[in-house]
Computed example of a mutant assay.
Amino acid sequence: MAKKKTAEERRQRAAELKAQRLKEERRRKILTISGVVTAVVLVVGLIAFLVFMEVRSRSVSNVAEYEVPSYEHVETGQPVDYEQSPPVGGDHWSAWQNCGVYPEPVTPEFAVHSLEHGAVWINYEPGLPEDQVEQLVGMYSAGDYLVISPYEGEMEAPIVASSWGRQITAETADDEMLQRFVRLYERGTDVPEPGASCSGQVAETAAEVESLLTGGGAEGGEGSGEEDPDAPAEGSEEQPMEEEE
């Protein structure tokens, strides 16, 4: 009788162990599935967050948009009457303004050509505080498609940034919308000549260009072959004006 009871107990114990093993296997499966689901949720959540932040960083409000019906090359030296001030596009001269930082105003007809290549042109009032100017200058790094210069014409705000067909105003250099505008439209692709160069052409300021054109140093946009080494544009190549082929 004792042997029969012992055998029964062994069978019962074996059943208990089997049930426990199956329970542990189910528990491991549940934990594994839960871990996978949690990881997927975290990854999806992270991706969604990054997408949200990217969209947010590129969302720009208060951008004025304009149609640019004509963008022909006109004779170098022939002034163009732009509808916007500063201009956002239109007819322009054959050479373009080298991207970079300029201490004096640049020629709009050259800068508009830079916009056509995907540049952003940041203009500021000549009386803008020096610390604000320094912040704007700090936005430029070598190779960027940015032209930064003071502007002596009428502007709706102390700082105005323009890309081809678009413009935004700002009161200060650290304006978040200004920063987003530059990130979104610098090297713009929805321009007449995306990817075209923004260097190797005009490094002179407007006053220097005017002197070259009126003083006989340049005719029809051809460079004099000489430049003032004391006033080059930061980040731009020191080369004379040349006509675009």
Rank of each mutant, 00 (worst) to 15 (best):
Gly100Gln: 05
Ser141Lys: 15
Glu186Met: 06
Arg58Gly: 06
Glu54His: 15
Val137Asn: 09
Ser163Cys: 07
Ala2Gly: 10
Ile122Tyr: 00
Leu50Glu: 13
Val44Phe: 10
His113Thr: 05
Glu227Thr: 09
Pro126Ile: 07
Arg56Gln: 12
Ser61Asp: 15
Val51Arg: 13
Asp175Gln: 09
Ser59His: 15
Asp175Leu: 09
Ser70Trp: 15
Gln167Met: 09
Tyr140Pro: 01
Ala95Gln: 07
Ser114Cys: 02
Glu125Leu: 10
Ala233Leu: 07
Ile168Tyr: 02
Val133Leu: 06
Met53His: 14
Glu65Gly: 01
Asp131Leu: 09
Ser61Val: 14
Ala7Arg: 14
Leu115Thr: 00
Ile30Ala: 12
Glu237Leu: 07
Gln239Ser: 14
Glu237Asn: 06
Ala196Leu: 07
Ser149Ile: 05
Asp144Trp: 03
Ala157Met: 05
Ser34Arg: 15
Glu242Pro: 07
Glu134Trp: 10
Gly220Phe: 01
Glu176Asp: 14
Trp93Gln: 02
Arg183Gly: 04
Asp174Tyr: 11
Glu154Leu: 05
Val209Phe: 00
Gln201Asp: 10
Glu186Cys: 00
Asp91Glu: 12
Gln132Lys: 10
Gly200Ala: 04
Glu72Ala: 13
Glu75Lys: 12
Cys99Gln: 03
Ala7Gly: 06
Tyr151Phe: 12
Pro194Gln: 04
Pro86Glu: 03
Gly195Lys: 01
Ala95Trp: 02
Glu75Asp: 13
Val68Phe: 08
Val63Met: 03
Ser94Tyr: 02
Thr172Val: 08
Ala7Tyr: 12
Val43Glu: 12
Gly118Tyr: 00
Asp91Val: 08
Ser114Ala: 09
Thr76His: 04
Gln179Phe: 13
Phe52Arg: 12
Leu136Glu: 03
Thr107Trp: 03
Glu8Ser: 10
Glu234Ala: 13
